[in-house]
Design a protein around this nucleic acid. Structure first.
Lengths: 246, 246
DNA sequence: CGAGCCGTTGAGGGGATTCAAGCTCAGTGG
DNA sequence: CCACTGAGCTTGAATCCCCTCAACGGCTCG
């Protein structure tokens, strides 16, 4: 999956333009944390927000790391892992376009999970100092932060209900439905490696492979060369309906 | 499990005492949302916080309900359920002593899960108006709120890693370890009904029963008449270690 | 071109579910 | 007082789904 860098009307890292200009020109402004701020508030920002690119498999941060920034997903998919006492990793949720993560840094807490890029990923790195700079006095910002926190919580809960419940086939179908929400503009989705699917759905690579193969035979999944993967939405919906009927 | 009402130095609902007196006398003050507030701030509270009692099985609120309050657990255990499209319920996490839940009401959102009392439960009902009354200007309160949100998120993620991973025996052992954290003063724990364990751990009642029976034979669990259940901490720890070794 | 990673498929075994029966116990009403 | 009932728990037997172990093919890369 190739990364399409989202357009900014102004160049990044251009010293002639303070951060506020960059943010106010951001194509995602309405969807992000600072969408709630007016230009006047944005103008008070001096801390630097920069855009960072990660390749698939890159670690954004490690669990337990004492970072000092949180992140907004501009493009791509990020996963959050932790390792059980038994020693095998488990993926606890995903983040996609518009999602905020790493908020725990605002509380001076170390990161709770390991964040890993699934696809090519473009992130905005938001230093925690920036939020303090604006102050928690900015009510719009506070509210927006809370909204993000609740969103993460909701995402975790529904991940629990969808990806950790029922037979292997059901879980794989639910995962595909979720991945479809993160599809790119051409309708292509990121299909995890089989061992990654295993870590998400608590199954072996072999089982994951069998499920995928079967879904390909059933024309729910269309895997074309070069990791161009497509889902047939109707077929997927039909398969899910069929499960619920039983 | 009988509910021991936590002592308050001042009576509840006594009109002669404004809310601030009740809160400042609260035996849990340090652990709760308003622990961060000083007496001066507390004095500004006029909205009424009351204590509510629920019996096992009582619904605190339903999913989708447009409530107007959040809750702090003073005593007992609360569970959060949702129903999958297939129609079976799934418990996504628990809350115990000191935990805050229902925060989404601050965002004017309907409750995300159904909240049900597991044991006898004593809650503080905190109307959302109260937070607005204090204003989001109170930085200590905002920070405390964020901390709670992060706590819920962490709880959901670790629930995912513990209760939805591995073989049935492992999941049951992890559940017991979690329940032990919510033990009462006498060291007794709440042992869920078998179908409730099923909803937590995604297994059938029969499997849950078999696992419990086996743990009783192995002297990890001590079930005495009248729902007085005790865990042998060392035996439990040993059983968990044994799993991780394999 | 061999090495290694990733994916796939098969065979066999084991763990969880399914189906079924019986048990305990609290509540109810004769 | 005790039979009756139903809910919750337990146990057994058969089935099935998923894991384990194993082999193999395609692909990339040194």
């Amino acid at each position: 999956m190739r990364l399409k860098v989202l357009p900014l009307r102004l160049p990044l890292r251009d010293e002639r333009h303070p951060q506020s200009h960059v943010c106010s020109a951001c194509t995602m402004r309405e969807q992000t944390l600072f969408g709630a701020l007016d230009d006047e508030a944005l103008a008070r920002i001096h801390t630097h927000i920069d855009t960072r690119i990660f390749a698939p498999g890159d670690v954004v941060y490690a669990r337990g790391e004492a970072g000092s920034a949180m992140f907004t997903v501009r493009a791509g998919v990020v996963r959050f892992e932790r390792v059980t006492e038994g020693g095998d990793r488990r993926i606890v949720r995903l983040a996609g376009h518009g999602d905020l993560f790493g908020q725990e840094t605002l509380l001076n807490q170390p990161y709770a999970d390991e964040a890993v890029a699934c696809t090519a990923v473009q992130l905005c790195r938001i230093p925690r100092g920036l939020v303090h700079e604006l102050g928690l006095g900015e009510p719009g910002l506070v509210r927006e932060l809370m909204r993000r926190w609740q969103q993460s919580l909701e995402s975790a809960a529904s991940w629990m209900a969808d990806m950790a419940t029922g037979a292997a086939r059901r879980r794989v179908l639910k995962l595909l439905a979720e991945l479809q929400r993160h599809a790119d503009d051409d309708g292509r989705i990121w299909l995890p490696r089989r061992d990654e699917m295993g870590a998400m759905l608590d199954m072996t690579v072999e089982t994951a492979s069998r499920m995928v193969s079967r879904l390909r035979r059933e024309r729910v999944l269309d895997v074309r060369p070069g990791r161009h993967v497509r889902v047939h939405p109707e077929a997927l919906a039909a398969a899910l309906r069929e499960l619920d009927a039983a």
